[in-house]
Simulated assay, not measured.
Amino acid sequence: MRNIKLTISYDGTDFHGFQIQPNLRTVQGALQARLEEVVGHPVSIIGSGRTDAGVHARAQVVNFHTSSRVPVEKWPIVCNVKLPGDLVVQDAEEVSEDWHARFSAQGKVYRYQMDRSAFSDVFTRKYAYHYPYPICVERMIEAATHLVGRHDFTSFCAANTPVEDKVRTLYAVDLREEGHLLTVTCRGEGFLYNMVRIIVGTLLDVGRGKIEPGELPDILLARDRKRAGVTAPAHGLTMWQVLYD
C-alpha cells in the first residue's frame, strides 16, 4: 500500500470542524468521500490535528493509505476537480509506510487575527475577530513572554479536556500589528483543546487592564481554567503550518 501525504487548505466557516461526524459537514468527511471516489476503496484519513467548527487552515496535513496507482503529482488535480470551493488540496507527496501526519509532526504554528477597526471589515470578518475596544499591545507583548517555554497549560485549555498530561512547550508567542489587524502567532510542539483561543482571550484581558502582565506566571501555576481569560471566537484562528523534520 502506498502512503500519500496531502497538504490542504480550508475555510472553516461552513464546516463543523475537521473530524468526521455523522450527518454533519466536516473537512475529513468531504475529503475522504472524494478520495474514495477516486481510488474505489474505503479510505481512512489521518490528520495532523483537529480543528473546531469555524477554525480555518492554511496548511493542514493529512495522510492516507491506498492501492491506487494515481501518480503523486496528480492527486491535487483529481481531488480539487470535485471538492467544494472552501476545501483545496495544495500539494501531495508519497511518504514512507510508517509516516504519520500526527505522530511524525514536530510542532505546529497557529495564527489568530483580530480586526481593531471601529467597524467590522466586511472582507476580513470571517477570518478576524472584530475587537474595537482600546487595548495596550505593549502590555500584551510583555505578558506573552511568560507563556514561552515548557509549562503545565491546564489554565489555558478547555475544562473538559480529557488529556491528562497538559504540559506543553511553546517556542514563541509573537504579536504583530499591520494596519487595523493584530495577529498573535503561537509556535509550539503541540496544543491543547482551545489553548490558542484562551491564550488570545487572556492577552486581550491584559491589553484592557483586567489582568496584569506579571500575573501570567501565577495563572499558569494555578492550573485553574477560571483564572485565565475567555475563549476567543473560533473564526479568528487559522492552523498556519505543521512542522516536520
Rank of each mutant, 00 (worst) to 15 (best):
R69N: 11
V70I: 15
V70Y: 03
P71C: 10
V72R: 04
V72M: 12
P76K: 03
I77S: 12
V78P: 01
C79G: 03
L83C: 04
L83R: 01
P84S: 00
P84I: 02
P84T: 01
G85V: 07
G85S: 05
D86M: 09
D86Y: 06
L87P: 00
L87R: 02
V88F: 07
V89D: 00
Q90C: 14
D91P: 01
D91F: 12
D91V: 05
A92W: 03
A92K: 03
E93H: 06
E94D: 08
E94L: 07
V95N: 03
V95D: 02
E97F: 14
E97W: 14
E97V: 15
D98K: 15
D98I: 13
D98A: 13
H100E: 07
A101L: 07
A101K: 02
R102G: 03
F103T: 05
S104Y: 10
A105P: 01
A105E: 04
A105M: 08
A105V: 09
Q106V: 08
Q106E: 12
G107E: 02
K108S: 04
V109T: 11
Y110Q: 10
R111Q: 12
R111H: 12
Q113R: 15
D115V: 06
D115N: 11
D115F: 09
R116D: 01
R116C: 06
R116N: 00
R116K: 09
S117E: 05
S117C: 06
S117I: 06
A118F: 14
S120A: 15
D121G: 06
D121T: 12
V122M: 15
V122N: 13
V122W: 14
V122D: 10
F123D: 08
F123Q: 08
T124H: 14
T124G: 10
K126Y: 11
Y127S: 13
Y127N: 09
Y129W: 15
Y131S: 06
Y131R: 02
Y131L: 09
Y131K: 02
P132C: 10
P132Q: 10
P132F: 11
Y133P: 06
Y133Q: 14
I135R: 01
V137M: 04
E138A: 08
E138P: 00
E138L: 05
R139N: 09
R139Q: 08
R139D: 07
I141D: 01
A143Q: 04
A144E: 00
A144F: 05
H146I: 04
H146T: 01
L147R: 00
L147E: 00
L147Q: 00
V148P: 00
V148Y: 02
R150W: 03
R150G: 01
H151K: 03
H151D: 02
D152Q: 07
D152A: 04
T154K: 06
T154A: 12
